[in-house]
Design a binder for these strands. Structure first.
Lengths: 178, 178
DNA sequence: GGTCAACGTGCAGTAAGGCTGCACGTTCGG
DNA sequence: CCGAACGTGCAGCCTTACTGCACGTTGACC
């Protein structure tokens, strides 16, 4: 519920209803109602509130369901295969948030998928060792160990290892695409 | 503008105004008005729309500003220092999106900051080589090479290397905190 | 104990604007 | 040439976001 989130943000900062109301240019009563779920804010008041908190509207809807701390070790990670590809990714993140980080090792010749793939996210690959080739639409890029590549996943793309040695990568994706 | 975003999501899927309206249970006219910015949707209609798209409300407000492809190589990256710490991070991502990925090498004894630090994000550290110690509130965790740790950055935390060798890490943060 | 300020909330009223139904101009395929 | 589907202008309804004021409660200070 959006009210809970706003209540949390306000109390976190030690603000009173009236203080926040004044800064946001709305009435204290309205805030009270919103926080208790009696009514729902309009986008315009949501904008004002986000402004006071220095946050984006988007962040008001991301549940901060505190997943404490999550450690993943090789061997005890959930793996997921790319659609129609050979790579097996290991998931480094719990998988309930807005951030997904994967780890993979590509054997020589291995590709992430047969066709180019697109999804509405941003992703960033860091090459730990070996050499990675990234195809984006009709271009392809070579990324060596220690280098990284960031791309808009809306553009059809795939990864492949056309070198003779294993390639180890870390892949950060936001938001995750199930 | 939220209307542009909705228009994008709709046309991406090849849906007509009427088709979307029916699935969402609202009138086509309303959608037309929203997409053109004539009016703003209420939270309840936003929920319905997000439901049809299989997206979160938050994602409707994240701008998908397409930054093509971005390659970063060691030496030509912008560096940024942690507040009050010794570490120098190298930024792997362009820095205009919702995803930030950093790279850093911690010399023995080096810490990310003097005090514990918190910001409203999620982050995930992958340890490339060496050993990293992560302090979260009153707990501390040891993460070895090949392992990773994900944490809610709202909890006060910092990184340190209390081993005798260099520690190399990759750090994914979402959303970035400037 | 008394006072006072600040807290969060109930209530009634208002004004705003989200939302609908219908009609119109346009563009496409058959 | 017709029909269906597209996106949009308009007028009106009617929900509801939002306000102002008053109330009960708490805690600091004298």
């Amino acid at each position: 519920m959006i009210g809970d989130r706003l209540h949390e943000l306000r109390t976190e900062r030690g603000m009173s209803l009236r203080a926040l109301a004044e800064q946001a240019g709305v009435s204290p009563t309205l805030l009270s109602q919103i926080e208790r779920g009696v009514t729902e804010p309009s986008l315009s008041t949501l904008r004002r509130l986000a402004g006071v908190f220095g946050a984006s509207i988007a962040s008001l809807f991301e549940d901060p369901a505190a997943p404490a701390v999550w450690i993943s070790r090789p061997g005890e990670r959930t793996t997921l295969g790319a659609p129609n590809g050979q790579i097996r990714y290991e998931r480094l993140t719990p998988g309930n948030g807005q951030l997904e980080v994967l780890h993979a090792v590509l054997a020589p010749g291995e590709v992430s998928s047969e066709e180019l793939w697109s999804h509405p996210s941003m992703e960033c690959v860091y090459v730990v060792s070996g050499t990675l080739t990234v195809q984006v639409e009709r271009s392809s890029y070579t990324v060596a160990a220690g280098e990284s590549l960031t791309l808009d996943s809306n553009r059809p793309h795939r990864y492949l290892n056309d070198s003779a040695t294993n390639t180890e990568i870390v892949l950060a994706i936001n938001p995750p695409t199930p």
